[in-house]
Design a protein around this nucleic acid. Sequence first.
DNA 1: CTGAAAGCGCTAACAA
DNA 2: TTGTTAGCGCTTTCAG
Lengths: 331, 331
Amino acid sequence: MSIKRIQQITGFSYSTISRVLNGKAQEFRISDKTRQAIFKAAESLNYRPNILARSLRLKRTYTIGLIVPDIKNPFFGELASRIEKLLREQGYSTILCNTNEIPENEEFYLKVLVDRQVDGIIIAPIHTKEWDAMEHIRRERSIVLIDRIFYETDIPWVTSANEQAADEVTSELIAIGYPRIAYLGGTAETYINTMRFSGYRKALERHSLSVDERIVFFEGYSPEAGEEMMATLLEREPDTRAVFCVNNLVFIGAMKVVQKHEIETGRSIMMAAFDIDRYCEIFKRPLLCARQDQEKLAANAVALLIEGIRNTVGPDRHLIVPVCVGRHRIR
Amino acid sequence: MSIKRIQQITGFSYSTISRVLNGKAQEFRISDKTRQAIFKAAESLNYRPNILARSLRLKRTYTIGLIVPDIKNPFFGELASRIEKLLREQGYSTILCNTNEIPENEEFYLKVLVDRQVDGIIIAPIHTKEWDAMEHIRRERSIVLIDRIFYETDIPWVTSANEQAADEVTSELIAIGYPRIAYLGGTAETYINTMRFSGYRKALERHSLSVDERIVFFEGYSPEAGEEMMATLLEREPDTRAVFCVNNLVFIGAMKVVQKHEIETGRSIMMAAFDIDRYCEIFKRPLLCARQDQEKLAANAVALLIEGIRNTVGPDRHLIVPVCVGRHRIR
DNA sequence: CTGAAAGCGCTAACAA
DNA sequence: TTGTTAGCGCTTTCAG
């Protein structure tokens, strides 16, 4: 009833009012006093356009869906925070979808977002490849993969240089005197795990070392998985000296076990992991960290998404963001 | 065009189709074969209702807004994760609004959510009291405050027993031999800081100790604030032995400084804070932690919100959730 | 048991 | 420069 209300007051028609309110006064050469009058009325009525009606008409909702596997993970927390901010600045609202690493949830949320007619979707998928529903959806909607991507797809994506960074981390560990490095990984077959493990393997091979399956684990990305893997590892190989964790959460879980072990045995273990820069600062122990560039990940994902929405797809729709590998020790 | 399409195929009218599709077949005693036919057509067309149109008509969007100060903070990350899940289970989608601790953003987001006609809003506010816009909004929309609340308001809220927990933490510190405890707090005047500081003060007073303003700081809730407060503290009082941090982030920042200090001086500092249970598990040092019950916070907030939406407000619209205080040391 | 038709609030094509 | 009007897709009276 709102535009109607303005029309009752000012006497101008729907269209004129709509035009003025949408900043098209110039375009339609609407007289200044008409414009003023409409603005005044709108203001006095505290007019707010009905976004639902507009969206229904325009078939654009200015809403995007963000699907992440675990918003509790500070890595995704920061990513979400950056993405949401950038989208907001472009006038979009963000619907948060937390899949909890459960593939069924991912499929479910995708449907929800389509039903809600979001203009686009940014997703860090659990699935490792495009499935039927997704293939269907992306034909009519802008989608961008972030962090975790599909091996072969022409869906735009942005991810980190996971393989290279894992390679660097492993090489560095070898260089500083740890030829035997355990690997605590995420779920097998998963993109992130595959790439990071591949980097780990390549570094070993370059140094004429080979992967020892007894110290390699693919259990999952959670603290619980980390704890379990580390416990099993130390049971099997109590004199482990170096461990590479696939992510921050696995690191957290592993550290629980490591701390106890170090106290009990007096032997220390060198730890390395992705995205533990926050922890690096507050541990007395030396740590090796591969730090993803969340700013670039988020910025590129949003840029690709908007390009998709505006149908102005650039040439580089697949981006790999460099990762910063660094040793750390409190001085 | 979708219901129209079904009507073209089946020949039944809009209303009949709408009724069947909304499960009102029984209510309107629609014949079985009509029902079947409509369902079949819907299925074959892969019919999905247009939520926008429905919302426009019904004036309900099945969307709620979640406003948090900092989604990067794992505390809010977990809270968001739980809230989103519970809402999802009730058929609601969640719009994420991250204010970044900036009051202007809060006001802005509130407007956005109203414009988007969300059915309700869950907010951990930065503002410390109801401001004009908010007062207006809550008349026509269900709002629930979580974590941070307003002192005097009849807006439903749920928060933790902050004062009591801070009191317990402080008493425990005193009991185990630390009569002189520094307090690293959040922004002054803020609800959380006020309550926790009050608990701290009460515990001291009960033990006939008084607050020493030289070791009390109200800088903010971020790691940066924590780092700065801790640095200033140690400059002023290099032989500080115990510190109480207002939250997990301040703790993180403070720990950076503490670690260095301990290495340089050989003197250790007893640390206590809210919501550092994750860290407790991975530090060798003893730690004292007040752990908020996020499950209850989230569940109650959602329950209150839904009550508000359904207009079935119960008697207890203001809830205080107990906090678990515990010492920790890796065995 | 089923249908006709109004209307949610807005935009835009077409007229004037 | 402004107005008329048709719809976007749905729900729901009111009328059979």
